[in-house]
Amino acid sequence: MSATGTAQSGTTTARAARRSGAQRKLLAFASLILLVAGFSIASPNFFQLSNIMAILQAASVNGVLAVGVTLIIITGGIDLSIGTLMTFCAVMTGVVLTWGGMPLPLGIAAALATGACCGLVSGTLVAKAKIPPFIATLGMMLILKGLSLIVTGTKPIYFNDTPSFTLIAQGSLIGAVVPAFPVPNGVLVLFVVAAAVAWILGRTVLGRYTFALGSNEEAARLSGVNTDGWKIAIYALAGGIVGIGGLLIASRLNSAQPALGLGYELEAIAAVVIGGTSLSGGRGTVLGTLIGALIMAVLTNGLRVMSVAPEWQTVVTGIIIIVAVYGDQLRRGAAR
């Protein structure tokens, strides 16, 4: 967390919106603490190391997807294809590792490359063909869902021939060093990805143009910025990050499940929104998204620990999203 914190503090947006942004993140962070405290009081089983690890593990896939789509949402776009793209990346890894019998690094590369290529296609449709992001990625969502089923013949691909594959998400590098603190690798991956994206947003040209596109794309274009090219690059980067999400889910399930994926995009977007990123673009932080993903995971886990029926968990999640955004509106209204 501290890594993302420092990377964020130098960004233009963080600087420009230092007070309101900090307030908003504080609000989100306070809600997270409040939720954790509430569940801890309500159930003795909640605040256990094993359960906390389970929460983090559960947040990892959604968190990675959410961090990826944060980039696109800051440009003022949206990506509905990330859920089925995640699955398609997992499938391509299965094709390379299980069917092709190739070594693990190639399987990882396959997921990343598949994600980046599909992001490139989405980005090109949005930037060059001028198709609204909602429509372009809705199309991609269905195309990728279909392709996953076609490639696999609707059957899961298992990774039993590559035993080390499950270690990507389920092993624990940290646990090997500090046995008392067995943080699963999936969680480590989430935090590394989040830190890297926070750094890109805060410190690099790509990050600065991400905010510029969302803030005023035409002004950026008239400043001589290759807006189309950068937009495509941002979608491709987000796609690559979704590829990482694909690796995580495949590793956790030890299989690529072609029917999976639909709905993940909305969970990820929900995490971004709870984290305070504006859907109209120009504003947003990775730290906020991370907190948003954790809030959702804590909620799901806590309600389950308290034996609330799953259908009610969904209802509560929906309410939380609405409350989070409404709270943000109130705060903004007060600021104005």
Partner: peptide, 29 residues
């Protein structure tokens, strides 16, 4: 509409047309 990114700060707007010059090989500003 065409000249400024209103939500960004003075520094980012002044830099808008010249960013690559203030970035290194990997795009760090």
């Amino acid at each position: 509409q065409y000249g400024l990114a209103l939500g960004l700060d003075v520094r980012a707007n002044i830099a808008m047309a010249s960013l690559p010059r203030y970035a290194d090989r990997i795009g760090r500003i």
